[in-house]
């Protein structure tokens, strides 16, 4: 698969990343390499193989509907780059 500059533009937009022109060039080459590494998989015949979504043979891992005390707000907000007393603050996203 060829990674084009257009693909890199698209992925960076989806990821909300802005790249400088030189970063974009190196990113294109590196992504090409990474994706190329996976290309080997396309040589396998998987027509008769059921897609695997989970590696461990687990199923029906459920919990009961019982309330557990929530975490202290201050403790949660301490992990945020920019909180105020009550909330996580993010750049303007709504009008």
């Amino acid at each position: 698969m060829t990674v084009t500059p257009e693909i890199v533009d698209y992925i960076s937009e989806l990821s909300r990343l802005s790249l400088e022109p030189e970063e974009k060039a190196s990113m294109t080459a590196q992504l090409e390499q990474i994706v190329g590494y996976m290309d080997v998989l396309t040589q396998l015949d998987t027509a008769a193989v059921e897609p695997l979504s989970h590696v461990f043979p687990l199923k029906n891992v459920l919990r009961e509907d019982v309330v557990v005390p929530s975490r202290e707000r201050a403790e949660l907000l301490a992990n945020a780059p920019v909180p105020d007393q009550e909330a996580f603050l993010v750049p303007r996203t709504v009008d």
Partner: peptide, 25 residues
């Protein structure tokens, strides 16, 4: 009050493991 019904799972902290509520199913 804002963010008082929250824990590391529902605030998306890294390394947390969500477990499905049986009642939802």
């Amino acid at each position: 009050a804002p963010n008082t019904h929250c824990c590391p799972v529902c605030t998306g902290m890294p390394g947390t493991l969500p477990v499905l509520n049986r009642k939802v199913l």
